[in-house]
Simulated assay, not measured.
Amino acid sequence: MKTLNPLILLLFIAFSSCSKEKMSSKKQWFKGNLHTHSYWSDGDEFPEIIMDWYKSNDYQFVALTDHNTLAEGDKWITISGDSIYQKAFKNYLNTYGSNWVNHRMDSLNQIQVKLKTYNEYKTKFEEDGKFLIIQSEEITDHFNNKPIHINATNVKQKINPQGGNSVLEVMQNNLDAAAKQKKALNIPMITHINHPNFGYAIGLEEMKALKNEQFFEVYNGHPTVHNSGDADHMSTEMMWDYINIAYIENNKPLMYGLATDDSHHYHRKGSKWSNAGRGWIMVQADSLNPKSLINAMEAGQFYASTGVELKDLSFKNNMLFVEVKEDKNTTYKISFIGCKKGQGEPEEFATNEGNKANFKLTNEMLYVRCKITSSKLHQNPIEDLLFENAWTQPFTFSE
């Protein structure tokens, strides 16, 4: 058998390495949801069924974020006697088989099932470059009956709720606990503030006073979180603008907005239920792994969506360019929103009808972001948010 000349072999290896490096450096869009619940806390479905739904519906990454718990150790749940859940269990058993599904009958003749851990169920679904499951937790705390929830993404050890003597102190204590783990374990990890208008627990002043936080939910798919606000409370989108006006003026990093499902209910669908598929993020990263995704998010290289998909999104030479991937018989309104220096109030700088638009950011402006509103109805809306939307992250002027 002939062997390659050592010099030729070395050149071949070098060429292959360069080719792989070039391919891996090309950024892609990855679709994901960072707020999801299962039987490990107050969701009503098994992790495997949930992961199968997201993977089958063209998501590339998902985080199960159960309340104050990680999917590890032994946990048995009792299946409700409701026919919906009895039927769902039978489907689960038939799909995965008795060798996978560990179940038993208790003394009351009720079905009990041992939940699969993160390390167990991820092996069934993860595929390199195609689907990723990120271990996460919803740190669930409160102050004077006000719910304060913060997601920690790519967490390695459970973070107990830290408490505190005010809404702000509770938030900051939990953020600091997550930051401490990130530093101690030297891992990529982010936190985000969940549904600030849930119970109207977190106000604008608390959000403005936070330290070392870059992410919050501008849209959450749970039907009771009041994304739109009310007569006495601003919407989360308006809150987002005022947060960034304050952050820029105080030399803090920008606050970025996420859309999430916060899914709990997988058997009943409609505006009364917290269903999967309502909101997600699209992250532009070079590869599908926690480090790459988190690095991209920390750089603002993602957008939030409830249905609108972007064909192109770029910010170069202070020009923001947006192009929507068109749906048939659908129109789009592209709005550029921001704030001028010294004004203190957000405003709509420009609006375009069509599937593409651009906007030039000047040094007279604090920032600009883009919102795309579609004429297409959301397939499963909540509140008064009837149409599909997308939100880019805010951009600032660079010299």
Rank of each mutant, 00 (worst) to 15 (best):
residue 4 L to K: 10
residue 10 L to C: 13
residue 14 A to Y: 07
residue 16 S to E: 05
residue 18 C to W: 10
residue 20 K to S: 14
residue 29 W to H: 04
residue 30 F to N: 04
residue 31 K to I: 10
residue 33 N to G: 00
residue 37 H to L: 09
residue 38 S to F: 06
residue 38 S to C: 09
residue 46 F to S: 12
residue 48 E to I: 07
residue 54 Y to K: 02
residue 55 K to L: 11
residue 63 A to R: 03
residue 74 D to C: 05
residue 75 K to H: 11
residue 80 S to N: 11
residue 85 Y to I: 07
residue 89 F to L: 10
residue 91 N to Q: 14
residue 93 L to Y: 00
residue 99 N to D: 15
residue 102 N to T: 12
residue 102 N to G: 02
residue 102 N to L: 06
residue 107 S to D: 08
residue 108 L to S: 12
residue 110 Q to F: 09
residue 122 K to S: 13
residue 125 F to T: 11
residue 140 T to D: 06
residue 143 F to Y: 13
residue 150 I to G: 00
residue 155 V to Q: 01
residue 161 P to N: 08
residue 167 V to M: 05
residue 171 M to Q: 10
residue 176 D to N: 14
residue 183 K to A: 11
residue 186 N to G: 03
residue 191 T to I: 01
residue 198 F to N: 14
residue 200 Y to S: 10
residue 213 E to F: 01
residue 215 F to K: 00
residue 225 V to Q: 09
residue 243 I to K: 02
residue 245 I to S: 05
residue 251 N to D: 15
residue 252 K to F: 02
residue 255 M to K: 01
residue 259 A to G: 14
residue 262 D to R: 10
residue 264 H to C: 07
residue 265 H to V: 13
residue 267 H to M: 07
residue 267 H to D: 07
residue 269 K to W: 11
residue 271 S to I: 10
residue 275 N to C: 11
residue 279 G to F: 01
residue 287 S to F: 02
residue 288 L to P: 02
residue 290 P to G: 03
residue 301 Q to M: 11
residue 305 S to F: 04
residue 306 T to N: 01
residue 307 G to Q: 00
residue 312 D to W: 02
residue 316 K to F: 03
residue 319 M to V: 15
residue 321 F to I: 11
residue 330 T to D: 08
residue 332 Y to W: 08
residue 334 I to S: 03
residue 335 S to F: 06
residue 339 C to W: 01
residue 339 C to E: 08
residue 348 E to N: 13
residue 350 A to L: 14
residue 351 T to D: 00
residue 353 E to V: 15
residue 357 A to H: 06
residue 362 T to H: 04
residue 362 T to S: 13
residue 367 Y to H: 10
residue 367 Y to D: 08
residue 369 R to T: 05
residue 379 Q to V: 15
residue 397 F to E: 02
